[in-house]
Computed example of a mutant assay.
Amino acid sequence: MPVRTALDPVGMLLMTGAVSALLVFLLDLAAGLWWLLAAAQPFVDVRLLVRNGALSRTYARLFLTYLLAYTMTYGFSQWVQDVAGYPSDVAGYLQLPAAVVAGVVSFLVARKTAIRGPLVVAALTPLLGAGLLLLLHAGSPLVLLLVVPALFGVPQALASVSNQAALYRVVPSEYIGTAAGLSRTSIYIGAIAASSLIGGVFGQAPTTPDLHVLAWVMLGVGVLLSVLTLADRALARATTR
């Protein structure tokens, strides 16, 4: 099919406008720009999501996982610099364990056929990470500041690989392109929501009590993610296909 006939310029413009309106709303919740939600009308056939609960739950898992991941990445880095007193370069280095763990775990599970098991681990691990966040204070040992980010590298790797595999097994072939694009959108919206959450909790500058508030919110999100994953029977069916 020629590129000029395969592209949908009007659809692309509508999608861009809808996503932009949603992201602007999420970036500044305090502004109360509720009217932007009227512009964020569906730009795909939402009946697909209604009919395909397994697909909708996949997007929900991606959103929740990356809400946790980006809240940790952005919030922890700010706290490390402003409260723990580390310079910005050291704060960046403290995130390296998460990247290393994510890379190693991705390599280990990339060729595995299991889906439910990795997703269960991806859902439960943030509970441990958020619990450790509650123990952090300005004088916390360096090893603890390395372990906490590393734990959040696990769900990033497992959720990315396994949710992608689950998506391909529950979506009809003619919708693969659209479904894959929406999976990335779920991740990006998770990142934006994390920024809004951090901004609302930290305000002008983070404090240790603020970090602990984030940790409690993350625990709640982790519980929701765990329930959503453990109760999803479609994951077991997808694993055995």
Results as ranks from 00 to 15, higher is better:
residue 192 I to H: 00
residue 124 L to M: 08
residue 76 F to E: 00
residue 43 F to H: 03
residue 170 V to A: 05
residue 126 P to V: 05
residue 186 S to G: 09
residue 206 P to C: 11
residue 173 S to W: 09
residue 80 V to A: 15
residue 79 W to M: 04
residue 137 H to S: 06
residue 65 T to E: 11
residue 212 H to M: 11
residue 38 A to K: 04
residue 13 L to R: 10
residue 128 L to F: 00
residue 206 P to T: 13
residue 7 L to F: 07
residue 24 V to Q: 00
residue 113 T to M: 06
residue 89 D to S: 15
residue 161 V to E: 08
residue 77 S to T: 15
residue 94 L to F: 12
residue 187 I to K: 02
residue 148 V to W: 05
residue 215 A to W: 05
residue 148 V to R: 04
residue 185 T to K: 08
residue 156 Q to L: 08
residue 64 L to E: 11
residue 134 L to D: 13
residue 21 A to P: 11
residue 178 T to Q: 12
residue 169 R to E: 11
residue 56 S to P: 11
residue 100 V to Y: 02
residue 117 G to S: 13
residue 25 F to A: 05
residue 58 T to P: 01
residue 232 D to S: 09
residue 157 A to E: 08
residue 186 S to R: 07
residue 45 D to S: 10
residue 234 A to L: 01
residue 106 S to W: 13
residue 152 F to E: 02
residue 164 Q to K: 11
residue 203 G to R: 10
residue 50 V to G: 05
residue 182 L to M: 12
residue 66 Y to C: 06
residue 106 S to N: 15
residue 150 A to R: 02
residue 90 V to K: 12
residue 35 W to Y: 06
residue 89 D to W: 15
residue 76 F to Y: 10
residue 25 F to E: 02
residue 56 S to Y: 07
residue 124 L to G: 10
residue 28 D to K: 02
residue 161 V to A: 14
residue 136 L to C: 06
residue 237 R to S: 14
residue 133 L to Y: 11
residue 111 R to P: 05
residue 68 L to R: 07
residue 227 V to C: 01
residue 4 R to D: 07
residue 25 F to M: 02
residue 193 A to Y: 08
residue 240 T to R: 07
residue 211 L to W: 11
residue 140 S to M: 02
residue 43 F to Y: 08
residue 88 S to Q: 13
residue 69 A to C: 09
residue 217 V to K: 04
residue 91 A to C: 09
residue 72 M to E: 12
residue 167 L to N: 10
residue 104 V to L: 11
residue 203 G to T: 04
residue 156 Q to Y: 03
residue 19 V to H: 02
residue 182 L to P: 08
residue 174 E to L: 05
residue 149 P to R: 05
residue 205 A to P: 04
residue 82 D to E: 10
residue 60 A to H: 01
residue 158 L to Q: 08
